[in-house]
């Protein structure tokens, strides 16, 4: 089967001479259609650089990136086959939403990359209302501004904006790390449901191992610009091979180490 995303020996270098910095080194990666692919790494590991090259914000220095078999970059020019095919949700909904735009304007903005016909069809009021209700907001909130919403609600707006173009592939760059635990749970549930409803493929970037384990089928661990380990999620979590992955995992399980688990917490009583 042809993978949806394929990276072949992709590298990214910033600057030159003494200031040369290799952010990403020789990355090979395939993401199959319908997968949730997790990308784990700490700050400076190159995961956001990778996302930027996928979404068209930074050209790779070498190597090829293909979407459904078609190269995304021609030299330094980003040439996606169909605009709106890929979307991204950023970490901080505080800075990723324009404070001077209404929610409606924010959600509809990605459609400007599309043809007039498509724009009309996808930007219909009915569709907009459907989408905003689907992400858990009310239609009368469309005329409001971002500052009137909580962090979790803002991230819902960012998710609606990502889905308006009906993308196949969505990059989620630390979508819940700025949110409180209880709000995070709501947003993760929503992302899972939307993936299923729209047959989406996710690249889920996070430094939070338990979020990755919950959300993804496949994962890659990045360290200093390289992928040090990749495979199905259970393999990586049960049998990590690389020392670095083991270090990451050892910092994950303090509650389990303390013997806490959900069963003991009678979580069933909480279900409505």
């Amino acid at each position: 089967m042809q993978p949806l995303i394929e990276l072949k020996s992709v590298s990214k270098t910033y600057g030159s001479g003494k200031k040369r910095f290799q952010a990403v080194t020789d990355i090979n990666l395939t993401i199959q259609k319908g997968e949730s692919f997790g990308l784990i790494g700490e700050s400076g590991s190159g995961k956001s650089t990778l996302a930027k090259m996928l979404i068209g914000l930074e050209p790779p220095s070498s190597g090829t990136i293909e979407l459904a078999g078609k190269p995304l970059w021609e030299g330094d020019k980003f040439k996606p086959q169909r605009p709106g095919e890929m979307q991204i949700v950023f970490q901080d909904p505080q800075s990723s939403l324009d404070p001077r735009m209404t929610v409606k304007e924010i959600i509809l903005e990605p459609l400007y990359a599309l043809s007039a016909g498509e724009r009309k069809q996808k930007g219909s009021m009915e569709r907009l209302q459907q989408l905003i209700t689907r992400v858990g907001l009310k239609t009368d909130q469309l005329s409001r501004y971002p500052h009137e919403f909580s962090g979790g609600q803002r991230q819902r707006i960012a998710i609606a904006r990502a889905l308006i173009t009906e993308p196949k592939f969505v990059i989620l760059d630390e979508p819940t790390s700025a949110l409180d635990v209880s709000v995070q749970a709501n947003v993760l549930n929503l992302l899972k449901e939307l993936k299923h409803e729209h047959q989406l493929t996710y690249l889920f970037i996070s430094h939070n191992m338990s979020v990755i384990r919950y959300m993804c089928d496949q994962t890659a661990v990045m360290y200093k610009g390289e992928i040090v380990e990749t495979g199905p999620i259970e393999d990586i979590f049960q049998h990590p091979r690389q020392a670095y992955t083991k270090t990451l995992l050892s910092s994950l399980h303090p509650l389990q180490a303390a013997g806490v688990n959900q069963a003991e917490n009678h979580s069933n009583e909480l279900s409505p």
């Binding site: 635990v181 209880s182 995070q184 993760l188 549930n189």
Partner: peptide, 20 residues
């Protein structure tokens, strides 16, 4: 209990997280 339950740490990936 809800705070502990909302953590994805032990959640079954096939079940929704128990959100508050």
């Amino acid at each position: 209990r809800a705070l502990i339950g909302a953590l994805p740490d032990w959640a079954d990936p096939n079940e929704p997280l128990s959100a508050i």
